[in-house]
Design a protein around this nucleic acid. Structure first.
Length: 156
DNA sequence: GCCAACGTTGGC
DNA sequence: GCCAACGTTGGC
């Protein structure tokens, strides 16, 4: 199974790349996803060893700020079971967790965020999901070609 | 703060 | 199953 690429969105006010950098081993579980399409990818498709672009949404400007490696594939998101949690879901249970998460390790923080406007203006990224207007999905697949172009924009 | 896009809910 | 209403997301 070849490695696959993804894009994960997070609002920096909620969980930023610097929050991840501050975690022990720069590793954290990616909890709180409450959308079925995104859930299916977390549960079924995203595998250990896959890599992802860390996207800051709701930021000014919004854009890609780094990369992570998936260190653990989909497992139940326990925050759905805790009434104290913001993303608590009364329909979730131990027997039927409904929601899933993966564990990620920060690989690289870009020195500068790549703004969405720049992504949209870059040849080869026209079809990238995050570049489409109204793209709300918080977990998105990225093609190897798009991955390569984004890393090139990030420079060394 | 505005507004477009989209997902979910709920009445029928 | 349809669809309008509503709430949320997210860029600007």
């Amino acid at each position: 199974m070849p490695k696959r690429y993804w894009l994960f969105k997070s609002e920096p006010g909620c969980f930023s790349i610097d929050d991840l950098a501050a975690e022990q081993d720069r590793t954290a579980h990616w909890d709180g996803v409450r959308n079925y399409q995104a859930r299916n990818m977390l549960r079924d498709e995203i595998k250990k060893g896959d890599e992802l672009l860390f996207h800051h949404s709701g930021a000014s400007p919004a854009g890609i700020i780094g990369t992570c490696t998936v260190v653990k594939a989909g497992y139940p998101d326990h925050t759905a079971l805790d009434p104290q949690e913001q993303h608590f879901d009364p329909k979730a249970s131990e027997a039927n967790p409904i929601w899933y998460m993966v564990k990620v390790r920060l690989k690289r923080r870009f020195s500068e965020l790549i703004p969405l406007s720049r992504l949209k203006a870059t040849a080869g990224l026209e079809n990238m999901m995050v570049c489409q207007r109204g793209s709300r999905l918080s977990i998105q697949p990225v093609t190897p070609a798009e991955w390569k172009i984004v890393l090139k924009l990030a420079g060394r």
